[in-house]
């Protein structure tokens, strides 16, 4: 689904990513661990094609297409979706309208989608205006549900979300990815009959792993991917020894 080869990225004059190689096969969920400032968000922004992230070497391939220099919106239309950690407010644009825009030409029942996310009361509010951390994440998930991407990039989905809402969020991520066991049994058939989608999930704390199933974990440390193995195992190591010790084995 997503293949990153020898990727080098600069922001301003500073090299943020050095020689990143990553492969997320179709249907797999990969977890990206790393301390603050290691380049996790930069990697996600580069995959999506945001301005300010200059690729100096390497290649990004998505669904077999070279997207290294493809405009942002074309990558979105090709099937990449992002859950932003701190999205901007868009004044005068209601969340309802935003969700419709995300759906493009498809018809979506915004009320139905939002009731799953308990977001009904915020639909007429301007996008991200005066929302709590958890509400922002639910707004982002609502948009992704309408967008229906083939691969989602989730930037710290659990940050700022209280314990009660994190389960709801995890469930909505599973819905978008066609994975997991749903609370509502009538949906199970649909879930297993549809192909799972791919995901790259940035997490700092690993809490989200209690709610979504991960196929693999990677550690990004000082701009380099240093480790690739079972996500829960990596999380245990990090808890036990910290990042520096954890990546020490790969040096």
């Amino acid at each position: 689904m997503l293949l990153i080869e020898e990727l080098k990225v600069e922001v301003g004059d500073k090299e943020i990513l050095q020689n990143v190689n990553l492969h997320v096969p179709p249907g797999e969920t990969h977890i990206l661990f790393g301390p603050n400032g290691s380049g996790k968000t930069s990697l996600m922004m580069t995959i999506m094609g945001f301005s300010g992230y200059r690729i100096t070497r390497g290649k990004i391939t998505f669904k077999g297409e070279d997207v290294t220099h493809m405009p942002l919106h074309e990558r979105a239309r090709l099937g990449i979706g992002v859950l932003f950690q701190r999205p901007p407010t868009i004044n005068g644009l209601t969340t309802r309208r935003m969700v419709e825009l995300c759906a493009g030409d498809r018809c979506v029942d915004v009320d139905q989608l939002s009731s799953h996310l308990q977001f009904d009361n915020f639909l007429e509010r301007d996008v991200n205006h005066n929302l709590s951390g958890g509400e922002i994440k639910r707004s982002e998930m609502l948009q992704l549900m309408a967008q229906e991407p083939d691969m989602v990039l989730l930037d710290e989905p659990e940050s700022g979300v209280d314990l009660e809402s994190i389960a709801l969020l995890g469930e909505s991520i599973n819905t978008v990815l066609n994975r997991g066991i749903k609370r509502n049994p009538s949906c199970q058939k649909g879930i297993i009959s549809e192909k799972p989608k791919s995901a790259l999930v940035i997490t700092h704390t690993g809490h989200i792993l209690d709610y979504i199933t991960a196929d693999r974990g990677q550690v990004l440390y000082k701009g380099q991917l240093r480790c690739s193995r079972n996500a829960r195992e990596i999380l245990k190591w990090i808890h036990e020894y910290g990042y520096e010790e954890c990546v020490g084995c790969t040096v």
Binding site: M48, A76, P88, L101
Partner: peptide, 13 residues
Amino acid sequence: REIEYLMARGLTE
């Protein structure tokens, strides 16, 4: 940031 946020949802610039 606002422009690119909308572009990430599939809108042209």
